[in-house]
Computed example of a mutant assay.
Amino acid sequence: MKKIAVIGYGVIGKRVADAIALQDDMELAGVCDIISDWRTQNAVRKEYDIYAATEEAADKMKSEGISVKGSMEGLLKKIDLVVDCTPKNIAAKNVEIYKAKGIKFIVQGGEKHKTTGHSFSAENNYKSAINLDATRVVSCNTTSILRTLTALKRADLLDYARGTLLRRATDPWESHLGGIMNTMVPERDIPSHQGPDAQTVDSDLDVVTSAVKVPETLSHMHYWNVKLKRQATKEEVLNALKTSSRIKLIQYDQGLVSNNTIKEMFLDMGRPWGDMYEVALWEDMLKIQGDELFYAYVVDNQAIVIPETIDAIRALTGIETDGAKSILKTNQSLSIV
């Protein structure tokens, strides 16, 4: 049993903590943050050990009736690996602490590739992460790009890909702070950062992305135009996509006509927070014209990287050296069918 710490108990951190708690080959040693509001109070209700990142935070937590197990430094002495889910400016400082203490660590996609020298996506490069000191789980959008394009690449169908991303304006719980209204904001640079980010995992991918921020918070939506290496049938393409257990084919004609209806389906399935760990790709929208493939899908920006993070823990700690076995184990624990 490897002892894992989660630093930063926010949108990603709380989901990573819950996912770790579901595994039978790793143990959640504690969560660490500076906040003492409803978020940490919920961690207390789940009986997670709470650690304070600073002395000031510890005093505030205690004044709010939170039992503080210790300091961040104390937590780091007890663990085999840390998953840092803090905002990127904080994570960059924490990384120096982890390196100085010789602690294995995982950061999220907001950090640059050079922070770890390795970027991770379970179905792509699990083997290359085994027993590394650090990795970076790529962002939600990049994870979706890698899952879908890698499935096509495995079937020797992929020549190159061009994608347009409709990006949610902010996380749902922060809509009152950083949302946009009655406007759309294009990213200035083409390619947007997601295409080059995917190439940090697979340098052979010929992929260009452009992105637009839109006034909604539930998810991202992608539209893709893929040049195939050869003419293929729709059935061949769908069979290729089905080789990824983390792509869920959905039907527009079954009432799944929008990101909110898809979210509702996952809520009805009993997923915590209605989380969608899979890429939800519209099967009946997928079209082929000659050697061009067109498809669209939805990405849950809060959830898609959670299974990847669990797999990254196994790879870095050497709990499991077979990527397929880790993916299966993670899928089963999170009810990914």
Rank of each mutant, 00 (worst) to 15 (best):
K248T: 05
E187L: 15
Q194R: 01
H222I: 09
D202I: 11
V185G: 01
P196H: 09
T217F: 01
D202G: 01
K229P: 02
I250N: 05
W173M: 11
S210Q: 15
K229W: 02
E216H: 09
V226N: 03
V257L: 11
Q231G: 14
E174P: 00
D204N: 12
Q254F: 05
T170V: 13
M184G: 05
S210C: 15
T209S: 10
M221F: 12
T170G: 12
S210R: 14
L241I: 02
A240P: 10
G179E: 06
N239M: 06
T170P: 12
A198V: 01
D206Y: 00
M181P: 02
N182S: 09
T243V: 08
L238C: 01
Q231Y: 13
D171T: 08
V214F: 02
V212E: 03
V207E: 04
L218P: 01
S203Y: 05
R246Q: 10
L238W: 00
N225K: 15
K229H: 01
D189W: 05
L241R: 09
S203C: 02
V208C: 03
Q251E: 12
V257C: 07
E216F: 11
I247C: 07
K229R: 14
S244H: 10
T170H: 08
T243P: 03
T243Y: 08
V185F: 06
I250L: 06
R167A: 15
L177G: 03
L165K: 01
L165T: 09
T209Q: 01
L241H: 07
S244R: 13
T200N: 11
I180V: 11
W173D: 15
Q199H: 05
L177Y: 11
L166G: 07
A211V: 08
S192T: 15
V201G: 11
A211D: 06
N182C: 04
R230G: 09
W224H: 14
S245V: 13
H220C: 14
D204M: 05
A240M: 08
P215A: 03
K242G: 10
D171V: 13
S219T: 07
V185N: 07
S219I: 00
T200I: 10
G195C: 07
R246Y: 07
G255Q: 01
E235R: 15
V226M: 06
A169D: 14
T164S: 12
G195T: 05
